[in-house]
Write a protein that binds this DNA or RNA. Structure first.
Length: 135
DNA sequence: GCCAACGTTGGC
DNA sequence: GCCAACGTTGGC
């Protein structure tokens, strides 16, 4: 089981939207590096959800319901999408400022490349995030 | 709203 | 295949 962090602009699609819809097909990933990561997602993987824009915080968790499949919203046959389901909304969000201030996350893609929209999260990083949520 | 950092495109 | 010019993202 692998762990990931997916980024979203909450005015486009937020954790609240996912909670209401219960599951969604994660589409629209065009960046090559992000796409390669997405291609490695497997059913059952756990995913942190990060809101960009005015939130800039990890707000909840999701679970992959499928492995990689072709993105039906993209005519490029190499495009990738995965189906995800809502798992939980964290009582305490973990802000980008907190993440940047914590040396445990110095290797995290979010810190190293702020434009990356899909990235792996190590087990240690995952535990650290969960700890900061107080869950 | 600005702009740094990163991606992409296209002329050569 | 290089790289200048342009486009996009996202933090500030």
């Amino acid at each position: 089981m692998q762990r990931w962090l997916f980024k979203t602009e909450p005015t486009d699609f937020s954790l609240t939207d996912l909670r209401r819809e219960k599951k969604t097909l994660w589409t629209g990933i065009r960046n090559a590096v992000a796409r390669n990561h997405l291609r490695n997602v497997r059913r059952g993987d756990q995913i942190l959800l990060y809101h960009t824009g005015s939130d800039k915080a990890v707000v909840g968790a999701m679970k992959a319901l499928s492995g990689p499949q072709t993105d039906p919203t993209n005519k490029d046959p190499k495009s990738v999408a995965v189906e995800v389901e809502f798992l939980q909304e964290f009582a305490k969000r973990v802000t980008l400022a907190q993440i940047k201030a914590d040396s445990a996350f110095s290797q995290l893609g979010l810190v190293r490349n702020s434009r990356l929209s899909v990235m792996p999260v190590s087990e240690k990083e995952w535990r650290e995030i969960i700890q900061l949520t107080g869950e």
